[in-house]
Structures are given as structure tokens and as C-alpha cells.
Amino acid sequence: MKWLSILLGTLIVSSPLYAQNFDQKRAAMVQNQLRQRGIVQTNVLEAFQKVERHLFVPAAYTSMAYSDGPLPIGYGQTISQPYIVAYMTQLVNPKPNGKVLEIGTGSGYQAAILAEIVEKVYTIEIIPELGKSATDRLKELGYQNIEVITADGYHGLEEQAPFDAIVVTAAAEHIPPSLIQQLKEGGKMIIPVGSPFLVQTLMLVEKKAKKVTTKSLMPVRFVPFTRSQEK
């Protein structure tokens, strides 16, 4: 019975109609959730158009892969809302020849998006099971420029430092000093702050002239939050 359901599932997923459906959903996601909300960088939009998000979510949530919210991926972790991933990517302003470090691989979706834009992505996942599944998935999808490392990301990746950008997907109540040190002069670090299910804000850390500054951005959820200017 089990093999039958696997066969059936494989047939459905590989059918042209099924793929076309996801292509349409992905195009709609890029248009409605990203472009209309101010994601303007062409390379970012192209990456979202290309990376098949439904391949990064658990089978039970495949139909919701292009919905406007986060989804659970197991072990208390989530794949972020598409808009958050796009906003974070745009904020670090990735360049084609860039080298990016990601702390918290999760499903590997953010790494895949970055890998479509930059030369090399190093991504560290602390939970072995997630690290293994992300490695397999990204390998299967043919990403040659992503290196998944299963380890504690607290100390970053000194041997590959400095990085043009660091994307921290699992924020803690302090920013590890080693990550600041491994950020290139002029580099940017982005950190989501808050609950993925409730309200998240983003924090941008920049290193310029040996000085570190931060910028706390407005809360983001389904749409960018804008406070009235009257006050």
C-alpha cells in the first residue's frame, strides 16, 4: 500500500499540470506578495521566480507553499513567509560576486534564493536532522555554490571570513561577537526579531569604518507595517 501511495504521489508531482500549477502560484507570489510590496531588485525577484518553494516545505504543506505566511518544517522551526525572505535578501543587497554566510539553514530555501544571486553561500544548521535534509535537497536541486555545514553557528565560519553579508534566520537575545568580526568592512547582517507566527521585525547591522551600527525596521507580517505620520 505504501509503495502505491509513493508511486501515486510521484506521478502527481511529476505531471506537467501539477508543475504548471506551481509555476502559476509562484508567479502570483512574486507579483502579489513581493513586487506589490516594494521588492524591486530584479535579481531578487528573478531568484524567487526560479526557486521552487514547494520543494522546500514538508509534503503536508506543499499546497500552501506559496501562501502568504510561514510554514512549519519540524523541530520547532519554520520556513519564513516569502515576503520576509525577499525583504531580508533585498536588504543585504547581494552582489553576483558576493560571499554570504547564513546562520540557520532550516529548509534551505533562503540559501537557495541567495545562491541564485551570489557566487558562494555558506549555511550553518545546528539541528543535524534539518542540516541533513537541507543538504540532500540542495544537492538534488543541483546547487553547486551552497555549502551546508551542520554545526553550532555561534562562532560563524572563521576560515571563510570575511563575508559580504550574513543572514541570521534564528535570532537570539544577543548577536554573537564572532559574527560581527566576520562581517566584511561595508558588509551587512540581517536578523529577524520576534515570533514567526505573530509579529516580526528585522534588524540590519552594518559595519562601516570599524564602527557597527544597527537599524531596527518596522514590523513585517503579511504587509509592510507603516505608522501614520501624523504623530
Partner: peptide, 12 residues
């Protein structure tokens, strides 16, 4: 071995 706590630690 990976639990640490330093609330609001300075970036310096």
C-alpha cells in the same frame, strides 16, 4: 554545549 545567554549584549 551550545546554550549561551547575554541579553542585549553590546556589539562592541
Amino acid at each position: 554545549p551550545v546554550l549561551r545567554y547575554a541579553p542585549g549584549l553590546s556589539l562592541s
